[in-house]
Nucleic acid binder design. Structure first.
Length: 487
DNA sequence: GTGTGTTTATTTCCGT
DNA sequence: ACGGAAATAAACACAC
């Protein structure tokens, strides 16, 4: 199922990839050129840091959430730290903590070394049944493993934010109470069972202060104390003047493979604290002064050159990597935050990209027409746009714009745009399509309305998955920055 | 009273 | 030395 819409892109990717990693030619790329399961990245949707765990038995790893060895290699190439590499220690497999937390978190002592310095290789037990490739060697876990569930003496190397996130993930609920978080932590980390209760204060402090976490007030008819907490699915300040403002990230994330800091390693490769992507700004209401945006962006990501490259962006020099970065970096677990706003705002339109909680009926699936192509076995984008907002500012009807691939893009509703604007929009959306094509929809019901897919159950990548994904991806470096070099 | 939530201040660790 | 991130401690307010 080739999903890269453009064969040229796929071939180009392959060429550059092999130029950099010629060993892959012999390793199977030649025999199985661009494994569909790899190029489609479909599996990536279901990939989680859990499924990447090299110690998981293969029989538990053959599902859609388990990348093949080739895929693991791909992730590894991209800098995904847990793609078959180190596997620090852990709560034991099978304990309740394993649901929503890494099985092998790093220990304070042993996780300081990165994968390059880890012990000798071993073979991944996780291989795609159809990959046809031998198991790839992966790094062994540090010699000393700590069972945090039973060892009361060793403080888990996780930041409080990480603990909170783990608890939230493990709960499988969209929102959790403070006591749920407490319970999960004490249940899974013996240290906190015996520690002074001050850590609970820290948890509360973190919840309040960390922008990552969002409080959901308890309904009046809901009994109990306090509200609920969830990982904030969206950031209202993602767009400033039409420019996507990424959340602040540690510069360490962009310092390359060897730049992973000791602290980061200490805080667990692959499950590093959310603060790096979810800023700990000392106040949820605080917004970064606009005058600092540029400076911040300059330290945040090379991909943020997007702002400076806005003109190029609109000319069609779409930064695919930035799309991935956008999608995978922040809170968005779905692909709802694809940065179409920038381009559209330049067209005099504004579209609000909403979280999945946005009231139904107002928004439309941004790829609403792309859904049509889905029925043709093609692709679909994720996310949805508030076209009511757009239409308010761009009161237009169906235009004559011929969107790529005969699709009816939202832009088609804007016939008053001049040719240049339409062309720009076309180009943008074409790239948007291509980007979206890298994340194909899971098979959906025939006739399913795009809007219907906004339901949580239909979100192709769960919050958990997304969280695990972006956390892993941004732990050590900017894999998509590397990825784009192959395009 | 207890649990929850917010805020401020301080300390520690670490990278630059 | 400096700054950032995180941890820690504490005070306070509020709801149940």
């Amino acid at each position: 199922m080739p999903v890269l819409t453009s064969p040229d892109i796929a071939n180009k990717f392959k060429e550059k990839w092999l130029a950099v990693f010629p060993e892959d030619q012999a390793a199977g790329f030649d025999a199985a050129p661009l494994d569909d399961s790899l190029t489609s990245l479909h599996w990536l949707q279901n990939f989680s840091i859990l499924s990447a765990d090299p110690e998981r038995p293969s029989h538990g790893c053959a599902g859609p959430g388990c990348p093949s060895s080739q895929q693991l290699l791909f992730l590894k190439r991209l800098g995904f730290p847990r793609a078959g590499t180190e596997s620090p220690s852990s709560p034991p497999a099978g304990d309740t903590a394993s649901a929503g937390m890494p099985l092998h978190p790093g220990s304070p002592v042993t996780s300081g070394s990165d994968s390059s310095t880890s012990a000798g290789p071993r073979f991944s037990a996780c291989a795609h049944p159809a990959s046809g490739f031998p198991h790839i060697p992966v790094q062994a876990s540090p010699p000393a493993e700590v069972d945090y569930k039973t060892n009361p003496k060793v403080k888990p190397p996780y930041s409080y934010a990480s603990l909170i996130c783990m608890a939230m993930q493990a709960s499988k609920q969209p929102k959790v109470t403070l006591s749920t978080i407490y319970n999960w932590i004490t249940e899974n980390f013996c240290y906190y069972r015996h520690a002074e209760p001050s850590w609970q204060n820290s948890i509360r402090h973190n919840l309040s202060l960390n922008k990552c976490f969002k409080k959901v007030p308890r309904q009046k008819d809901e009994p109990g104390k306090g509200g609920f907490w969830q990982i904030d699915p969206q950031y209202a300040d993602m767009f400033v003047n039409g420019i996507f403002k990424r959340r602040r990230m540690s510069a360490n994330h962009y310092s390359g493979g060897s730049g992973a800091t000791q602290r980061q390693n200490k805080l667990v490769q692959g499950y590093h604290s959310v603060q790096n992507t979810c800023p700990y700004l000392g106040g949820k209401q605080k917004h970064l002064p606009s005058k600092n945006i540029k400076a911040i962006r300059s330290t945040v990501s090379p991909l943020l050159a997007m702002e400076a490259n806005k003109a190029d962006f609109l000319k069609g020099d779409f930064d695919l990597a930035s799309v991935f970065d956008d999608v995978l970096s922040g809170n968005c677990s779905t692909f709802e935050d694809l940065d179409i706003n920038t381009a559209l705002s330049s067209l005099g339109c504004e579209m609000e990209v909403h979280g999945r909680q946005h009231a139904a009926g107002v928004a439309r699936w941004c790829g609403d027409a792309l859904a049509q192509s889905q029925h043709l076995g093609q692709h679909q984008s994720y996310g949805y746009l508030d076209l009511s907002a757009a239409s308010a500012e761009c009161p237009v009807g169906m235009g004559e714009l011929h969107a790529p691939q005969q699709l009816h893009h939202p832009l088609q509703r804007h016939p008053h745009l001049d040719q240049d604007q339409l062309l720009q929009g076309q180009q943008h959306l074409q790239h948007f399509d291509e980007a979206a094509a890298l994340f194909p929809e899971q098979p959906g019901e025939a006739g399913l309305q795009p809007w219907d897919e906004i339901k949580d159950e239909a979100i192709p990548m769960s919050l958990d998955q997304g969280f695990g994904l972006y956390e892993g991806f941004f732990t050590e470096m900017q894999p998509w920055e590397r990825a784009e070099t192959y395009l």
